Simulated scan of single mutants.
Amino acid sequence: MTSHTTGTRDQWLAARLDLLKAEKEHTRRADELAQRRQALPWVRVEKHYRFDTDEGLATLADLFRGRSQLLVYHFMFGPDYKAGCVSCSAVADGFAGNVTHLANHDVTLAAVSRAPLAKLQAYKRRTGWTFPWASSHGGDFNFDFNVSFTEEQQRTGAIEYNYAVGEHAMDAATQVPPPVSDNAIMCGTDVATYARDRPGLSAFVLEDGVVYHTYSTYARGLDGLWGMFQWLDRAPKGRNEQNVWWRRRDEYAQAGAR
């Protein structure tokens, strides 16, 4: 017999209606937060960034692909990774359909990583992804937007991530939670190397030939992009997890998953 609370249909409906009030408040609050994001001041991007893409060398303005808005997912794939981050891969699995809808609403969705373009292209072939994915290898883009860090920053703790300095520094001597070490192993690298890249999302707008940075979010700020978690949050047992249970889509069979 289940250990979960049970009740009559009338009891369930009363509890559900009470929850509905909270859900509606949450929705209204989310709408307000979206408006506040859009009201943030725009910051002109002065630096001239260069990216390697499937179409050749590109500027940040080129990544817009003729549209006025650009959403960049900072995908964790460092130059020394053997494969893309398994968590970022789970997020990116949800991009396919959204890319088309966004493109028809004047928004380009693209990923950017520090790994060389050839590595990104090989990984795209493995996963079957078709969304734009640019390499910032050798450039400052990832560092300037606080999703990549040097070994020296790591050693000294001078890492600014998610708008805090020093809280997220991880090197070879740091005790790290299993999700981080598990992800490092699945990327074919060590924790210190893995942790020199972090996930994030940055938004840009292009007006009169000028690119402006409008928004960036990191860590749990990316939660809404994990499509599978939005479904799990509505499943009877929720996320029901302790450590990293997810895999790349082509790895579930070999892991013996149901």
Results as ranks from 00 to 15, higher is better:
residue 178 P to Q: 09
residue 178 P to D: 10
residue 178 P to V: 04
residue 179 P to I: 01
residue 179 P to V: 00
residue 181 S to M: 08
residue 181 S to L: 06
residue 182 D to T: 01
residue 183 N to W: 01
residue 183 N to I: 03
residue 184 A to T: 04
residue 184 A to D: 04
residue 185 I to E: 13
residue 188 G to N: 05
residue 188 G to W: 05
residue 188 G to V: 03
residue 188 G to A: 00
residue 189 T to G: 04
residue 190 D to G: 08
residue 191 V to K: 00
residue 192 A to G: 01
residue 192 A to C: 05
residue 194 Y to K: 08
residue 195 A to P: 00
residue 195 A to I: 02
residue 197 D to W: 00
residue 197 D to S: 11
residue 197 D to N: 07
residue 197 D to R: 05
residue 197 D to T: 14
residue 198 R to N: 07
residue 198 R to Q: 14
residue 200 G to T: 10
residue 200 G to Y: 09
residue 200 G to F: 12
residue 201 L to S: 08
residue 202 S to K: 03
residue 202 S to H: 03
residue 202 S to G: 10
residue 205 V to Y: 03
residue 205 V to T: 15
residue 205 V to K: 09
residue 205 V to N: 07
residue 205 V to S: 11
residue 206 L to F: 06
residue 207 E to T: 08
residue 209 G to S: 09
residue 210 V to T: 15
residue 210 V to E: 05
residue 210 V to S: 00
residue 211 V to M: 03
residue 211 V to L: 06
residue 211 V to I: 01
residue 212 Y to S: 14
residue 213 H to Q: 04
residue 213 H to K: 02
residue 214 T to D: 03
residue 214 T to A: 12
residue 214 T to Q: 06
residue 215 Y to A: 09
residue 216 S to D: 12
residue 216 S to A: 15
residue 217 T to Q: 08
residue 217 T to P: 01
residue 217 T to A: 11
residue 218 Y to K: 04
residue 218 Y to E: 02
residue 218 Y to L: 10
residue 219 A to H: 10
residue 220 R to D: 11
residue 220 R to A: 09
residue 220 R to L: 07
residue 221 G to Q: 05
residue 222 L to C: 07
residue 223 D to L: 06
residue 224 G to W: 02
residue 225 L to A: 09
residue 225 L to M: 10
residue 226 W to R: 13
residue 226 W to V: 12
residue 227 G to R: 14
residue 227 G to D: 12
residue 227 G to Y: 06
residue 228 M to R: 13
residue 229 F to S: 11
residue 231 W to E: 12
residue 231 W to Q: 12
residue 232 L to R: 15
residue 232 L to W: 10
residue 232 L to P: 05
residue 233 D to Y: 14
residue 234 R to H: 07
residue 235 A to D: 13
residue 236 P to T: 13
residue 236 P to D: 14
residue 236 P to F: 10
residue 236 P to R: 11
residue 237 K to F: 10
residue 239 R to F: 02
residue 239 R to S: 03
residue 239 R to P: 03
residue 241 E to V: 14
residue 243 N to Q: 10
residue 243 N to E: 11
residue 244 V to M: 13
residue 244 V to A: 07
residue 244 V to S: 05
residue 245 W to N: 08
residue 247 R to K: 10
residue 247 R to Y: 10
residue 248 R to M: 07
residue 250 D to I: 05
residue 250 D to E: 15
residue 251 E to Q: 14
residue 252 Y to W: 15
residue 253 A to W: 07
